[in-house]
Amino acid sequence: MRTVIFRTIAPYLAALMVLFSVFVLLRGHNEPGGGFIGGLIAASALAIYGIACGVAAVRRAITLHPMSLSAAGLLMSALSGLVSLFTGQPFMTSQWWYVRLFGVEVPLSTPMIFDIGVYLVVVGSIGSIALALEERESD
């Protein structure tokens, strides 16, 4: 699998896929997409990068352990549900804020934070599984 062409292209391909996954994640509320799909795309990017350049390179590139990403995502999702408690509403009632940034109205919301959490959990867990299995190749 580790042909020169593949090894040369893989980093760019992986970077593009991660970028695309973030795009898919953020547009998910209105168009096809969302945390699950985005997370899977990003996890595939990690897997491809791992196959091409070795797991160690992937681990260096993402600095954090993938399971830490996953845990952070789960925490984020859970906390996003707590925001509504400050407004006296039940757990996980969605909250929306419309913020003007550089003259553009950007809608921020707890479901979006939640979806980012989902994304991180999927990237972390699936990526971690894929990397762990790829590592088995080398021993």
Partner: peptide
């Protein structure tokens, strides 16, 4: 959607 991801994991 969630079932696909869970059955995969």
């Amino acid at each position: 959607l969630t079932a696909i991801v869970i059955s995969f994991s």
